[in-house]
Amino acid sequence: MALALLPRRIFYGLVSLAILSVIIFVCTHLLPGDAATAILGEGATPAALAALRARLGLDQPAPLQFAHWLGGVLTGDFGVSTTLNQPAGPIIAERFLNSMALALVTIFCAAAIAIPLGVVAAVRRGSRLDGTILTASYVGISIPDFVLGPVLILLFAVPPLALFPSSGFVAFAASPAGWIAHLVLPVAALTVVLTAHLMRQTRSGMLDVLNSDYVRTARLKGLPERLVLWRHALRNALGTTLAVLALDLGYLMGSIVIIEEIFAYPGLGRLIVYAVANRDIPLVEDVALVIGTVYVAANLVADIAHAMLDPRLARP
């Protein structure tokens, strides 16, 4: 992608986010039950439901509710969570930062492990080392996360080892050491899942580049192999890896509900599942929008970086 296309890409992203909001609203609205049934539980009587719906504004026509939400978001007001009865903005902001921290640390760890392994596997393709790395990667993608999480807790968080806190979250501001300690196990679980995937993508990308004319030319020019590998080949192969990382960021922001539940980590994934289960439409909308924005932005950044790294693409 040439950088000149950037404004258009941003516009496309915004259009997608708008479509996303409508889809989420319609889907959530169509679900049986509403916030009033969720709030009242077994205390629900027809009269109480009617009274609560009136108080929460759930008796208004759906398009009006959507317009109300949209108007708020466009002016920076994320509205009020129906079931928590608190402004959604601060709740989401906190969860967003938590999820972002977990995601970035995980991505850093996964990349630090996967990229070197992927490069080595590609360079020595067909060797026993390559086979070992590939085989190990299959183990990573085949263990369900809700087995991996408890196993890590039982191995590392309880006596005799008791190396790390089992679960929970400590704010960085309150205690940087506590913050890191609490991140170790969830990051480890997620890194196992991501590394496998990322490693294989890096290997594929690297193999593609190594077979390309571009690298062949470099070799023909008589450049030392190490320079060809690390300066020319990896630089280009990283484009693929970056695209995968961008997708992973989106995944880590919203899809790791189970890891967040197991490690009692207050992230966006648990929040959106809570919101869906309780039919808290403003909260579902807000969180989906935030996750969507991260997804769109991450892909955009990955594309730009790809364009800057890969000379083949930078040329118009």
Partner: peptide, 18 residues
């Protein structure tokens, strides 16, 4: 009061005196 939604983590947290 801390919400720990997974039973394994809950047991581990008590065992660890968290």
């Amino acid at each position: 009061l801390r919400v720990l939604p997974d039973t394994t983590a809950q047991v581990a947290a008590l065992e660890n005196r968290e």
